[in-house]
Amino acid sequence: MKSIEVKNLTKKFGDFISVNDISFDVYKGEIFGFLGANGAGKSTTIKMLCGILEPTSGDALVSGFSIDKDPENVKKNIGYMSQKFSLYGDLTVNENLNFFGGIYGLEGSILEKRKDWALNISGLENKGNILTSTLSVGFKQRLALGAAVMHEPKIVFLDEPTGGVDPVSRRKFWDLIHEISDKGMTVFVTTHYLDEAEFCNRIILINAGKLIASGSPAELKEEFIESTVLEIICDDTIAVTELLSDEDYSQNVSVFGNSIHLILKKKYSENSEELDIIKRSISEKTGKQDKVKINTILPSLEDVFLNLLERRE
């Protein structure tokens, strides 16, 4: 069942085309990743899907309601949370939940029940009377999510929800996202972290307002990286990158922290002679510079996207 149906959605600001004729579907209960660089049109798309920005052309059905013709009903059926965690620091946890429940029309015993649930999932049971500003970022983030889905929306939009959060809290937060999606809620999430995108059921990537890839993480890897990826661990990553980028066998070289991912032009089976020759050649070439370690790895989404974006340029 389709939860969101986007059809030829376009938004222009004057001459600038922010979102350029994109179409995609999101299914019920999915965790749907929406990826793209800053300025790629992510925020504009989310604003339109939340019913607070009119599209220039095209339309989208969110939970069955047109964002163009019926934005009020769209708003009633969605939840929204951004990395700014729009909670009031000068209110207590309970007061914040009362407020967010209230603006979605919850009251009485239903409100109390939903509040308990939100406290529970954010790990703040018995901490309802704490001032929100004194909570750690990780707790604030989970509370913000709890507040955003308290009214049990069919779809929740998370706009870069894990910005500025430590890895442990990020992990816990994703556990929570899975919990919510298990309940049948559709989760639409934008993120900068491509390792997080691996947790999504399906992903789309947009660049300069255009949709350039869509599919599950596995599909994307298969579709866009047909060749072998080598991980080269070395000290001077920049020098090694320069050395390798002009070689016949290399298609794309990118730096990942203290290692390099080298995408080859062909797919080689592990232990094949051809791959050994390439590995040896790399060792020889970089031997003067560095002692390197070479492994064959499965491509990450980051490889996919860097490869995709570079191909476009």
Partner: peptide, 13 residues
């Protein structure tokens, strides 16, 4: 300034 208004704007209020 604290962008708490966003949450209200996106709600049915």
């Amino acid at each position: 300034e604290f962008s708490t208004i966003e949450q209200i704007r996106i709600s049915p209020v």
